[in-house]
């Protein structure tokens, strides 16, 4: 029992040492993370953020968007602007999209982040059109009221002037 426990400790220490030596070369790869909206998107636009342990090491950050989690179908790429690590994406139709970030370190080595799933489901058209027509009715009523009342005032002013 005692011997077995001692062996385990040695292996554990060896593992930690290995991790320690491996760690510097994988810092960026293991820490490159992409975060996006968790709720269902109803407007077709959203913002995603790329993070890493050492942000200054990140170059050429690009977001890849695909309609399948293996990124084999209709993959599109959206480059980040300059040094910024947040990216606003827009104009998405209904559907589920898979996003991941791709970035390079200062040596030109390419890394890929985790995959984020974003669901876009626009408001039903009937709901939008209902609000549209409510707005239209209120607007027409408002303009008609304003012009009518203004005209009445002008007429009454002219009437008083003649009197």
């Amino acid at each position: 029992m005692t011997t077995q426990k001692s062996c385990f400790n040695y292996r554990y220490i060896l593992l930690v040492l290995c991790m320690f030596f491996i760690l510097p070369t994988t810092t960026l790869a293991s820490s490159l993370t992409l975060s996006g909206p968790e709720a269902v998107i109803k407007e077709g636009y959203f913002t995603v953020s790329v993070r890493a342990n050492d942000m200054s090491e990140l170059n050429r950050v690009t977001i890849e968007v695909a309609s399948d989690s293996n990124f084999t179908e209709s993959t599109r790429q959206f480059p980040a602007l300059g040094d910024f690590k947040d990216i606003s994406l827009t104009g998405f139709s209904n559907g589920t999209y898979y996003l991941r970030a791709r970035a390079e370190d200062t040596d030109g080595q390419s890394y890929v982040s985790n995959t984020v799933e974003v669901t876009v489901k626009h408001y039903p058209l009937w709901q939008a059109l209902t609000l549209f027509f409510i707005g239209l009715v209120i607007f027409i009523t408002l303009v008609a009221t304003l012009l009518l009342l203004h005209r009445q005032w002008i007429h009454s002013k002219q009437h008083k002037h003649h009197d």
Binding site: R76, G91, H122, L125, F132, F139
Partner: peptide
């Protein structure tokens, strides 16, 4: 480019945008 990559931006029946129209006027 918009037609192929971001068709929703050209869609005249884009629901949130349709809701936005009179909101912006008011």
């Amino acid at each position: 480019n918009l037609t192929s990559e971001h068709p929703k931006l050209l869609d005249l029946l884009f629901p949130a945008a349709v809701m936005f129209l009179f909101n912006n006027i008011f």
